[in-house]
Design a binder for these strands. Structure first.
Length: 881
RNA sequence: GGGCGCUUAGCUCAGUUGGUUAGAGCGCGUGCUUCACACGCACGAGGUCACUGGUUCGAGUCCAGUAGCGCCCACCA
């Protein structure tokens, strides 16, 4: 950057600083990562890639600012900051958007059509396209979003190296994702299993434990009678010698019932263990089993086990070795079933089939009232359903309750590594530290391996094919893997080695795995993707393991946990040393701000209204991990601070001469105070407590403006001669230099602007202030001592007292005070000689009269109200020779 | 049911190892065109530090418990 001329605008303003500096920063490359520096000099950041479909909101602005504060601090400390930006364009939100935008549906069985062009307007009936074509459309749409995002981030002043962007759906990311998967497969750390899986019936895909969400839903307890299957009598609580009653919220699953279960110690049901009961309507004989998870307090104390109603059913089914009788289909409806010899066992298969046919094809919600009336009619419903509110599991993006279906899915071995992951969680430095507990809780509470397959389209495909046998059946036991150098592959289009494309789907041919990976299976590899694990080994060695993972607390269980897992499995290390957890932005009702609530303000509008520095100020006040209220008032305060920086700087720099050394005790005192601010701000930043660093700096700065600048004004204009003016000027420039640098991470635009008035280069690569540099400004720093601070403190007390009395007397400042009598102790009065001239000038006091005595008292004697308005005053602008 | 966090002025929040009279900003009130700044300056009013008990010479700060709010987790028939 060329050396700018020392020129201070007459009316400095914030307007236009963003559009002035963003291009200059880009052109000069101040934020470019220096890939030649050794690992010890690098600070690398695993930026959270925002989801590109949709828009950024104030929550993003908030947390991304936090990361930028740390990045800027580290850069000024001399680190080569590796600060890339990723785009998470891989996943369901994008997929949905593309479907609607272009009017297409993905059909992974179709081959790639290179000549496909989407219609200008979406047509009524969606066009089916191949997966590669679909992904092309996703990419095309997300590129637009990414441009808008980048523009906003730049406007906010993120010091990202824009040459280092990545997209989670890019070929490079797919390659990393598939390679990491293959590595795990080779080591047996992923496996495929036909097993009960959490399933969203609208998206028709499996979902992971981490994506679950509880929602309160209305429901009803149905009390239902199960007849005993033989003549055993007198041992059941119903008292009629023939039946047992269960309670269920899901009567539509009765056809899927495979057993009843009660607690082993429950006296009421103990005699039934080993017996069989007959399901109502369908007449299936099912056993009564004991299991410790059955709660005698719940319902009637005996429950029906269905395949599958909830997660407990899965546990019971697995641990009791029960058969599967699945009724719910992937689309959430009850599927066809045959009762009797050829199908499911029933004591009266004609009756069973009759009832079941009425349910076939209905969704679970629609089937429920039908079966209830069937039960009522058959006399198996005891009493009427009792409405309740209960908690039901949902996919966090879904609209209907999750079902549990048996399907073939890929899993990553997680349970085997739980203890080691807990260890890693303790090695990681958490900011704030209590966030580690969330990780511990989650890891401790894991109850299954990680299901990473999704039956969706826009994502990273599993790099696997399967051979077909002579009958065209899939042989899952002998998967066909690509070689590393083939990656990335799309098995729906690419052909495995040893086969011809025409053999796809043919007997003795092959098929591709139709699934894609869970979006977290790829985004858990952002450190590997960003650092160039496969593409740039040199950069990888200089940036990985990374220094910082910034993220929000709601995705500790997903993104953070999964990243730790993947890094542990692939590299045997933590992916980063620090995790900085941001809070949420809350609206004034203390609820998380969300789009659905309609309370989200466009970030760009905020940046334009309050200035980027003003918005950053608000964000910076949100301490790590703390939820923060959305508060435009704070942005206004930030804007005012930025304006103050402009004006105070203009004052400090407007009179450059005479130059000299810091000799005045008051000047030394200010530098000494600033020195301790530097120490505190640095310590706070080192501990990732940017909010504290800002607060210390800001408090000092306002006092500096209100007291010191006022106190020193007359002297620096020459009222007390050259030496005093020189001392003031030296102090002003020294403290301004330090203050600007302390503010630079928070207010990058205004500090850069002021810096450009008088310093070469960008402030953002200037060295972070050190305490020593302030001491060396004085003639001899050993005189920056206790006595100096007390002189300054005393001066501010006198300032305050006299201002107060002037305010109470409602006297304008232009009216001189004829005299002030100060009664105080000897020690305080001894300080007067070094501050009296400054005070006389700042307060417009003609003379001080000093009296030794107690108690301390400062008293204004009178005002020279007769002086003509606007008249001259003594000592005005006569620089000493 | 388990865990974590929070509760300080009307609002948003500081308050670091316990130590005089508890701080800031916003808002409010009063006054002031002051040669860096009216996008400003000065001054003022405003608090039983959620509650109860304990430790201590001394508690906003430490301990125990209670309540409310928020979040995370849980095998919620």
């Amino acid at each position: 950057m060329s050396l700018p001329p020392l020129r201070i605008p007459d009316k400095p303003a914030l307007e236009g600083l963003e559009s002035k500096w963003i291009p200059l920063w880009e052109a000069s490359g101040v934020y470019r990562f220096d890939g030649s520096r050794p690992r010890a000099d690098v600070y690398s950041i695993d930026t959270p890639p925002p989801t590109v479909s949709g828009s950024l909101h104030v929550g993003h602005v908030f947390s991304y600012t936090h990361t930028d504060l740390v990045a800027r601090f580290q850069r000024m400390r001399g680190k080569a900051v590796f600060y890339p930006m990723g785009w998470d364009d891989n996943g369901l939100p994008t997929e949905r958007r593309v479907q609607n935008y272009y009017g297409v549906r993905c059909d992974p069985s179709l081959p790639y059509d290179p000549s496909f062009v989407p219609p200008a307007k979406p047509e009524k009936h969606p066009i089916s396209v191949s997966r590669p074509n679909f992904i092309e459309l996703c990419t095309r749409l997300t590129v637009e979003d990414e441009k808008a995002f980048e523009h906003l981030w730049k406007h906010l002043g993120l010091s990202v190296d824009w040459a280092m962007t990545y997209a989670t759906i890019s070929r490079a990311a797919q390659r990393v994702s598939q390679r990491a998967f293959l590595n795990l497969a080779r080591r047996g750390l992923v496996y495929q299993l036909e097993a009960p899986t959490l399933w969203d019936v609208d998206f028709r895909t499996a979902v992971a434990q981490a994506e679950l969400e509880d929602r309160e839903r209305p429901g009803a307890y149905h009390r239902i009678r199960f007849a005993l299957s033989d003549g055993v009598s007198g041992i059941n609580p119903a008292g009629n010698g023939a039946a047992v009653e269960i309670e269920t919220t899901r009567p539509e699953l009765i056809p899927a019932c495979v057993a009843l279960v009660a607690h082993p110690d429950d006296e009421r049901y103990r005699p039934l263990f080993g017996q069989e009961v007959v399901t109502p309507l369908f007449g299936a004989r099912v056993p009564v089993k004991p299991h410790a998870l059955a709660d005698p307090q719940k319902g009637s104390g005996i429950a029906m086990i269905c395949t599958f109603g909830d997660i407990t059913d899965v546990t019971w089914w697995r641990e009791l070795g029960l058969p599967v009788r699945a009724v719910i289909q992937p689309d959430g409806t009850l599927g066809r079933a045959t009762w009797g010899a050829a199908g499911w066992e029933s004591v009266d298969s004609v009756r069973a089939q009759g009832y079941y046919d009425q349910l076939t094809g209905l969704s679970a919600a629609k089937a429920q009232p039908v079966i209830v009336s069937q039960l009522r009619e058959s006399g198996d419903l005891v009493g009427e359903p009792r409405p309740i509110t209960h908690v039901v599991k949902f996919y966090e993006k879904g609209d209907r309750p999750l079902e549990i279906l048996t399907s073939r899915q890929w899993f990553v071995r997680t349970m085997d590594f739980r203890d080691r992951l807990l260890e890693r969680g303790r090695e990681l430095e958490w900011h704030p530290s209590y966030m580690q507990t969330r990780f511990e809780n989650w890891t401790t509470g894991l109850n299954g391996d990680w299901c990473i397959s999704r039956q969706r389209f826009f994502g990273v495909p599993f790099p696997v094919w399967y051979p077909l046998d002579a009958e065209g059946r899939v042989n899952y036991e002998r998967p066909l893997w690509p070689s590393d150098d083939q990656l990335p592959v799309d098995p729906s289009t690419d052909t495995p080695a040893g086969y011809q494309a025409g053999q796809r789907g043919q007997p003795d041919g092959f098929v591709g795995d139709p699934d894609i990976m869970d979006t977290w299976a790829t985004s858990s590899l952002t450190p590997q993707i960003a650092c160039g694990w496969l593409d740039d080994p040199d950069r990888f060695s200089r940036t990985f393991p990374m220094d910082l993972r910034p993220q929000a607390h709601d995705i500790i269980r997903t993104w953070l946990f999964d990243s730790v897992l993947r890094s542990e499995l692939e590299h045997g290390t933590l992916p980063w040393r620090h995790a900085a957890i941001s809070g949420w932005v809350l609206d004034p009702d203390r609820k998380k701000m969300s789009k659905s609530k309609g309370n989200v303000v466009t970030p760009m509008a905020l940046l334009e209204e309050h200035g980027s520095d003003g918005v950053r100020y608000w964000a910076a006040k949100g301490a790590p991990g703390t939820d923060t209220a959305f508060d435009p008032n704070q942005m206004k305060v930030g804007r005012r601070l930025a304006i103050k920086v402009l004006n105070a700087s203009k004052f400090a720099l407007s009179v450059a001469e005479p130059r000299g050394t810091v000799v005045a005790p008051v000047d030394r005192a200010v530098l000494k105070k600033l020195e301790s601010v530097v120490v505190e701000a640095t310590e706070a930043f080192d501990a990732y407590d940017y909010a504290r660093a800002l607060q210390r700096t800001e408090t000092f700065f306002w006092r500096f403006c209100d007291d010191y600048l006022e106190l020193v004004k007359g002297r620096r204009y020459g009222e007390q001669g050259t030496e005093g003016a020189a001392s003031a000027n030296a102090t002003l420039s020294a403290s301004l230099s330090v203050l600007l640098r302390l503010f630079a991470p928070f207010l990058p635009f205004v500090t850069e602007e002021v810096w450009s008035w008088w310093q070469p280069g960008s402030i953002h690569v200037a060295p972070w202030p050190k305490p020593e540099e302030l001491r060396s400004r004085g003639a001899d720093h050993e005189r920056v001592e206790q006595a100096d601070e007390s002189a300054y403190d005393w001066a501010t007390q006198v300032l305050f007292e006299v201002r107060k009395q002037r305010s109470e007397a409602k006297q304008p400042l232009k009216v001189p005070i004829s005299g002030v009598v100060i009664r105080a102790g000897r020690a305080e009065l001894d300080l007067m000689p070094v501050v009296e001239a400054d005070l006389r000038s700042a307060l417009r006091v003609r003379a001080f009269e000093l009296v030794v005595g107690e108690p301390r008292n400062i008293l204004v004697q009178g005002y020279e109200v007769d002086e003509a308005p606007g008249g001259s005053r003594t000592g005005d602008a006569e620089p000493a020779p």
